[in-house]
Amino acid sequence: MPRIAIIQFPGSNCDMDAYHVAREVMHMNAELVWHTDFKESKFEGAILPGGFSYGDHLRSGIIAAFSPAMKEVKKMNKERKPILGICNGFQILAEAQLLPGALLRNSSMRFVCKWISMKVVTSRSPASRKFAKGDIFQAPTAHGEGNYYIEEEKLKELYDNDQIVFKYCNIAGMETPDSNPNGSLENIAGVCNLEGNVIGLMPHPERASERILNPFKNEKGRIVLESFKEYLQGKK
């Protein structure tokens, strides 16, 4: 079975959640790897978990973006291996310029910790291929800097190139200001790169992958990891 790395940075704190779901729920061949030890050639894919790498100093993700692991992740990207960044992992991928845009301070200026609904905008990414376009699911958010921003002309490119993967919405699927937890431009919750192999999202699907943890009594967050697993196995 393809090996995947869950890369631990100083300050990662959702690494064990991702590891638990990958191994115990998804039965994937996942390993925890310290960021200075990560060698991309040993793995077929990587997950950058959530947390507060380097204390979020200067900007969330910027210091980890210069970690030796990110040189390896960039090589991994050149080989078009799948890379999933969750929360701080998304911030790191954006700061490392593997994903477009930036994650700014939440517009409320507050840390937001709540369950949100999001809808699937495209099923072309390794984290959304088992969803249908328009599917709605819930996952928790927990971040202070998740306010997605990109310049206007680049936003158009995101739409033209089908790079917006998830958007915040209400339970009925409407993209309302109330359903946007952090002020993200156009309710954007997750994006992928042009090639579609790198994907980042602010909410935590790994914490919505088991019914017992999910107040909506479903396990749809699991579909994100199921998608990732299927992509790794090379299924068309």
Partner: peptide, 9 residues
Amino acid sequence: ELRLANPVA
């Protein structure tokens, strides 16, 4: 070089 300012924002 170290992107002390993020040119996006």
